[in-house]
Design a protein around this nucleic acid. Structure first.
Lengths: 252, 252
DNA sequence: GTGTTTATCGTCAGGCAGACGACTATGATC
DNA sequence: GATCATAGTCGTCTGCCTGACGATAAACAC
C-alpha cells in the first residue's frame, strides 16, 4: 500500500561528514573544494546523497571511505585497529539551506588518527586537512595570510556542532583514543586532549588520571621514544568506553 | 539550477516525537494509537510529515502543539513559563523501517510538566501517557495485566534513545526543571530525578546540591504544603543551564 | 658530562559527595 | 490537645578526587 505521492513533499537526503583529526597539535577537519555551483570553488564538508537501499550509517561510512580510505571501527570487534569512530551528529533541514531544492542532511562525526594525506576521489588538491579555527573564522585570514571564505551552505554550523560534540564527548568517554594510532603513549593521548580543548594539561595529573581509571588503558609491554626524552610506555585502548568520573576540562 | 530528479532517490521526511513527563512517580511517554495500516491499532510515537516550507524544528513544534497543546519554550525568553523543552534527538533512516516507502524520520525529544490530559486531534481514546517501561517491554504485560504489543515501526528504539538522552542530560544540565511546573519545591525536583533515573536519592544531600549550585534555583519567596509535611520553599528555574559539577547518578 | 626533553612517582591541601544525625513545621489520628 | 507521620532543612564527618607542584628517571644532543 504505497503512499499517495502527492500527500507529502519529496526531499533529497544527504550525509555530510565532520571528519576530525589532530595534526601538529591542532584539531583539524577534512574539507573538500566544491567543483560546481552553488558555492563553486568554496570549501565544504565532504558528503553525498544517500542511496535508495542504504542505511544512513552505511551512507556515512561509504562517503568516509571514498574520501579518506578509512574503514569504520566496528564496536563489536573491540580489538580491531586503525578503524575510525563514526557516529551520527545531527540533522539539518532548513528549507533554504540549499538554493537548488529541499535537502535534508544527516551530519555524521568521524574521528580519525593522523592520516598520511587526504584524497578526494583521487584529486588531492581538492581536499585538505585544515585547522578548525581556520575553517570557522568568518572572513578572516589563514595562516598564510590569504583571505578565507566561509564554508559552503550551513557547513560552518555543522562543523561547529561536530567540534563541540567531540570536545564534550572526550570528557566522559574514551573517545580521545580514536584520535590515536593503535598503540600510543600517555603523552600522545594528553596532546590529543590539549589540541581538542585548546588548553594545557598537567602531565603528572593527567598521567595519574588515565592510568588510574580501570579499563581505560591497557599496557602493551612495549615502549617508545618517538617523542624524544625518556622512553614512554605504550598502551592500547581498553574496553571501557565511559569515563567515570570524567576527565575535567579546565575553565576558560 | 535545479537538480536532475533522477540523480537522487526521493525520500519522505517525518518528525517523530518522544514526549516525556513525570506522572505518579513514573517517567511516562506520550503514545498514540495508529488508525491505519501498517501497524493498525498498535501504539506509536506521535509524528507526521515535514511540510515543504518548514524547518525540522518548526515541524516538531507544530506536531507537539497538535498532539498536546504545548508551546515550545523559547530559550531567548528565559522567564517564560509553561513551555515545553524541545530538542532534536536523532534521525532514523533504515530502508526497511516503513514497509510502504523510504521514510527518514528526524526524532525530537520533548520534556513537559505533568499535563491535564492528552488529546490526539481531539480524540482522547487514541492518545495516552504510558510509563516508558511499559511501552518498552516486548511482549510483556501492562499494569492491568493486559498483554502489551510492541510499539510500531522502530519506535521502541527511538523511545529508548530519547529516554537515555533525558537520563543523561539531567545529570549535567538544569533540564530536569522542564518536568516541573513554573514554581516547584526541592522535593518535587528530587522526585523528578528519582522517577527519571529510577533510583532513590538522599533528600538532604540533594537539597544541599541544588541549593548550593549558583544560578540553578531562584527562590520565589512563597512556600507550599501541597506535598504534606512541613511547608517547602518554592523556586523557579534559574538562568544556569549547565550544572558544573554535575548531579551524580547513583550506580546500579 | 651537561643540558634538554619527556616520563613517572609522590606529597599535600581543598572541594565535593555519601552517610547519616538532628531539628522544624505542617496535617492526621487518637 | 498530645502524639504521630510526613516532608523539609541544617550540620557533621569521612573518604575520594583534583589541582598544584617537587623530585627522580631515562633517553638524546652537544
Amino acid at each position: 500500500m504505497p503512499y499517495d505521492p502527492s500527500a507529502f513533499p519529496p526531499f533529497a537526503v544527504t550525509v555530510d561528514l565532520v571528519v576530525l583529526t589532530v595534526r601538529r597539535h591542532a584539531l583539524c577537519a577534512l574539507a573538500v573544494r566544491r567543483g560546481e555551483a552553488p558555492f563553486q570553488g568554496r570549501w565544504a564538508l565532504p558528503g553525498g546523497f544517500v542511496r535508495a537501499d542504504e542505511d544512513l550509517a552505511q551512507a556515512a561510512a561509504r562517503e568516509l571511505a571514498e574520501e579518506t580510505g578509512l574503514r569504520v571501527h566496528d564496536p563489536a570487534v573491540p580489538a580491531q585497529d586503525n578503524g575510525a569512530h563514526l557516529e551520527q551528529l545531527a540533522t539539518y533541514g532548513d528549507p533554504e539551506r540549499d538554493p537548488r531544492m529541499r535537502v535534508v542532511s544527516v551530519a555524521h562525526l568521524a574521528l580519525a588518527p593522523d592520516l598520511p594525506a587526504p584524497r578526494a576521489g583521487g584529486d588531492a588538491s581538492n581536499a585538505r586537512w585544515a585547522p578548525v579555527e581556520e575553517l570557522l573564522q568568518q572572513g578572516g585570514h589563514g595562516r598564510d595570510g590569504e583571505p578565507v571564505a566561509p564554508l559552503a551552505f550551513d557547513h560552518a554550523r555543522i562543523l561547529s556542532d561536530g567540534v563541540e560534540r567531540a570536545r564534550s564527548k572526550i570528557e566522559y568517554s574514551s573517545l580521545a583514543t580514536a584520535f590515536c594510532p593503535p598503540e600510543f603513549t600517555v603523552g600522545e593521548l594528553r596532546r590529543v586532549y590539549e589540541a581538542v580543548w585548546g588548553v594545557a594539561l598537567d602531565p603528572r595529573n593527567f598521567h595519574r588520571k588515565v592510568t588510574g581509571t580501570p579499563g581505560f588503558l591497557v599496557p602493551t609491554g612495549g615502549t617508545t621514544t618517538r617523542q624524544g626524552g625518556r622512553p614512554a610506555q605504550l598502551f592500547r585502548a581498553g574496553g571501557a568506553t565511559l569515563l567515570n568520573p570524567p576527565m575535567l576540562r579546565p575553565e576558560v
